Simulated scan of single mutants.
Amino acid sequence: MTGRVVHTGQAIVDVVMRVASIPAPGSDVFASDSALLVGGGFNVMAAARREGAPVVYAGGHGTGPLGDLVRASLRAEGVEVLLPAHPGLDTGFCVALTDDDAERTFVSTVGAEGHVPVDALDDVVVTAGDVVYVSGYSLLHPDNAAMLARALPRLAGDVEVVVDASPVIGDVPEAALRTLLETATVWTVNEREVRILGERVLGELPAGAAPQEIGAQLAERLDTVVLVRVGPGGCWVARRGQLAMLVPGIAVTAVDTNGAGDAHTGVLCAGLCAGTPLEEAVTRANVAAGIAVTRPGPATSPTAAEITARLAR
């Protein structure tokens, strides 16, 4: 079985700068390195393509130099672009600061990717084996949230709907969150995000609740798979009626954590649409994220051959 990854998120442009530390308010620092790169949802799509999956970008893109850069990068990775360019807006951008501890801080704008027409996915047909990817960031844009509220109930059913909660899941409006809760088949979250999502779905949580415990409770309540990424420790897999299981990660020296979660999710989606068993797909996703953090930049997911070679070691 080989399906497609249908990506409904946002590809934007990253203005990436490496700094010793995040500057204090009112100060000025010089970056030791900088680059203008396509990022955001592109990172997930590039990871899925490098793992061998067909990918369709069903998100917005703009008319202008940044939109041109996004389309060129998507073409280079072999991603099919579904929608026409927005006639009046360019693609948005994000300033991404990476410090000497490999942590990143973002300041983002919103462009054409945040203004997708409500009927944009009306003609999209999905079949068994396809994976629909949804980002929590989409729910912060009213136009995109309305589009997903209209499209997801129709698209869900015979396909996997993978929701990448993202750091903004706590800010998603209640009605938009309800759309995800009703259609998601797989949630992927990090340690911070699982607690935020848990508090929204389950109510107040004990201060010392472990990420895998919260993931297991969410899996029970939502009747979905919940994946909790715990950095180099790997990823907890929680299913309804089962104990959460840890799929280990790999030991690496991180130089840039920007895009690690995207690499993980892209490879995971590629595995699911290829019919790979979940634990095996998560294992490959863990390796992809581990390799990605050893490379500077946002879209640093490895190829399928690199993942296989690392597993063989």
Rank of each mutant, 00 (worst) to 15 (best):
Ser135Pro: 04
Val118Thr: 13
Ala274Met: 10
Asp143Gln: 14
Val5Tyr: 01
Leu121Glu: 04
Tyr57Phe: 15
Thr188Val: 13
Thr303Asp: 11
Gly198Met: 03
Gly41Ile: 06
Val163Arg: 00
Asp28Glu: 13
Val6Trp: 01
Tyr133Gly: 11
Pro153Phe: 06
Gly78Thr: 08
Thr98Phe: 02
Ala176Gln: 06
Thr185Trp: 02
Thr105Met: 09
Pro84Met: 06
Gly59Asn: 07
Leu36Asp: 06
Val15Asn: 11
Val163Gln: 00
Val237Asp: 05
Val116Phe: 04
Val15Ser: 12
Ala72Val: 11
Val126Tyr: 02
Val15His: 13
Gly111Met: 04
Tyr57His: 15
Val16Ile: 12
Ala145Met: 08
Pro277Ser: 07
Val162Phe: 05
Ala207Phe: 05
Glu204Thr: 15
Thr257Pro: 00
Thr179Gln: 05
Thr265His: 10
Pro296Thr: 14
Gly249Arg: 03
Val168Gly: 04
Ala176Asp: 12
Asp143Phe: 12
Gly39Ser: 10
Ser301Ile: 08
Ala309Trp: 09
Leu89Gln: 14
Ala58Glu: 02
Leu83Cys: 10
Leu37Cys: 10
Ala216Arg: 12
Val124Ile: 14
Pro296Cys: 12
Leu202Gln: 02
Ile196Met: 12
Val56Tyr: 02
Gly198His: 00
Gly9Arg: 04
Val124Trp: 02
Ala112Ser: 11
Gly114Leu: 02
Trp187Met: 13
Thr294Lys: 01
Val13Asn: 05
